[in-house]
Amino acid sequence: MSKGFQFKQFFVGHQGCAMKVGTDGVVLGLWAALPGRGRVLDLGTGTGLIALMLAQRGPDLAVQALELDAAALAQARQNLAASPFSDRIQLQGGDACHFDGGPFELVVSNPPFFTPDVHSPDPRRHQARHVAALPPEELAAACARVQAREVALVLPWEGQQLWAEPLEALGYRLYRRCALYSVAGKPSPVRALLQWSKEPKPFEESQLVLRDQDGQWTAQFRALGRDFYLHF
């Protein structure tokens, strides 16, 4: 069984993490619109995957990564140290509800969004997956507290408004939304990729399909991920 994922420029071990490397985090790391320079925050970094992707995509960015779970923090520390971007990523343990290290140009997060009726018997996996671990209101408050100019999230397509409302109440305006389809021909998206800004910007709507009906990666996704995936 694989204990990690090899990308073109770095390896992400995940044996110590309740949540393994997954498509949600990868796609968010590829899709989020980045500032040209400044500080960005990966909130709830887990393996460190998104922090590493942001560092690769933004050579002039200083990346901060925050993780609550001690085992995931240790795994992320190992992954970041072994990467070519270790000098630009600062990793810290702690709770988003008490973190105050801003300001940041951008906060990126793949937050826990499963509802309590979707239960995992593993307490660490339950914490990593379920919305009670970081409710939408607390996530929005954390973004405001660190003075984030922009926020980018990956969320369930159904229910995305639960996260949108508290952010919008704090002055963030949605300006990018991408409907993510797992397979071509599916009637509805599985995820929403969303980005908000404190400044008014023209609204951009798009869609991304991961696999065609034969189960192969689409040309669209290959183009997006070609700097990261080994065989794209």
Rank of each mutant, 00 (worst) to 15 (best):
R222I: 05
V209Q: 07
F221Q: 03
P202E: 13
S188K: 14
K198S: 14
R211Q: 14
Q213R: 15
K201V: 06
L194T: 09
G225L: 02
L224I: 11
R226L: 02
G215L: 09
R191Y: 08
V209I: 15
L208F: 05
L224T: 11
D212I: 11
P187Q: 08
G185R: 09
L208R: 04
L210D: 01
Q213V: 12
R226F: 01
Y229C: 03
E204C: 13
Q216R: 15
A219C: 01
L224Y: 05
P189R: 08
F203Q: 09
P202W: 13
L224P: 06
H231M: 02
R211S: 05
G225S: 15
E199H: 13
E199A: 14
W217R: 12
K198W: 03
Y229N: 00
K186G: 00
K201I: 06
H231I: 00
L193V: 04
L208S: 06
R226M: 07
H231T: 08
P202D: 13
E205G: 10
G215A: 06
F203M: 09
K201T: 04
S197K: 06
E205R: 14
H231G: 01
P189C: 10
E199T: 14
L208T: 07
K201Y: 07
E204Y: 10
K201M: 12
P202V: 14
W196K: 05
